[in-house]
């Protein structure tokens, strides 16, 4: 009688269980709208990193030989070869718009990421304390943040800039402040559910201090919702920063900031529409990319939508 063949188990033959992060990233790459978002974002990152190599001109220097508000001239599309090529035209200060748009990507990404990082740090800390410690501190923190949410966000940002004075840094600070309550709420809700779990109790039983429990047991397990909210927060921060710059309360001349570029040329929309079209398109695509990725992340991280491992 033949013996049934018993598979020999060795360390190599056991399929390795994938790390949840790896699974998540793989799902994200299969998500259709996230794919589109990541595609746009990677173009932006390339523009931001290699701005110096991609941009044909200095974004700030005025060109001596260019006519102000000259429409786009692309040689491939039949623009006369003796004319200088300006893919997106020349702006009202004789600067090459294409170069300014490329450099603007750098600023826009920095703006979005830095404000959200700041808001997450402050809001996350406040929310974590409120949720973890509870009691009167919880009430005090959350009710104060409710008051901040009683103002329409952009108007609050405008009022804060009014106090601090116009300027890019102050505008960023204002935007970070208006985003704090959102992150505080998200983290608080998630800390509230995590802090009741068994492993947190186990850690306490082992004699860990409250701070240690909060930072090593609770917070690392409570940050997932922040990933989605943070991505969407970057989108709204970029939009708000552009709006403040557009109103003349953010970035100042001659910074290549898309909102400011739009604001500077808004009166030439009828005679040089390309000066309004391209900066706006750049803002829209950037914000769209983060919104699409945020949507994808929400689908991927939502436990209700995850079917098995």
């Amino acid at each position: 009688m033949n013996q049934a063949q018993v598979p020999v188990l060795s360390a190599d033959s056991i399929p390795e269980r994938d790390n949840p992060t790896v699974i998540m990233v793989r799902r994200l790459f299969q998500h259709r709208s996230a794919q589109l978002g990541m595609f746009i974002l990677s173009i932006l990152i390339i523009c931001a990193v290699f701005a110096r190599q991609i941009a044909p001109y200095d974004p700030i220097k005025q060109l001596a030989d260019a006519k102000r508000r000259e429409p786009p001239c692309i040689h491939l599309l039949g623009c006369a070869p003796e004319k200088t090529q300006h893919i997106m035209g020349v702006d009202g200060n004789s600067r090459d718009q294409f170069s300014r748009i490329i450099y603007g990507a750098r600023l826009s990404l920095v703006v979005g990421i830095s404000t959200v990082t700041f808001a997450i740090l402050i809001g996350g800390l406040l929310g974590a304390m409120a949720g973890f410690l509870g009691g009167w501190l919880d009430d005090l923190i959350m009710r104060s943040l409710d008051v901040l949410m009683a103002f329409p966000s952009l108007l609050l940002a405008i009022a804060i800039v009014a106090v601090l004075g116009p300027g890019l840094i102050n505008a960023l600070l204002a935007i970070a402040i208006i985003e704090i309550p959102i992150f505080a709420r998200v983290i608080r809700a998630s800390v509230l559910s995590v802090k009741e779990l068994d492993y947190v109790m186990a850690s306490r039983a082992q004699g860990a201090s409250e701070l240690r429990v909060l930072f090593t047991r609770v917070l690392p397990n409570a940050v997932t919702p922040l990933i989605v909210q943070g991505t969407l927060g970057i989108a709204s921060a970029i939009l708000s920063a552009a709006a403040l710059s557009f109103l003349g309360l953010g970035a100042e001349f001659p910074t290549p900031e898309w909102g400011l570029m739009l604001g500077e040329e808004r009166n030439s929309v009828f005679n040089a529409p390309f000066l309004v079209f391209f900066p706006g398109l750049a803002i829209m695509l950037t914000v769209l990319s983060f919104n699409l990725i945020g949507d994808g992340l929400r689908d991927v991280l939502d436990p209700r939508l995850v079917h098995g491992g």
Partner: peptide, 25 residues
Amino acid sequence: MLGANIGVSMPIFWLGLLLAYFFAL
């Protein structure tokens, strides 16, 4: 839904200027 995503990402001031350009000119 793609349209809705674009709508959410639209800077209001840009849309306003584009509308003005299109409907007035």
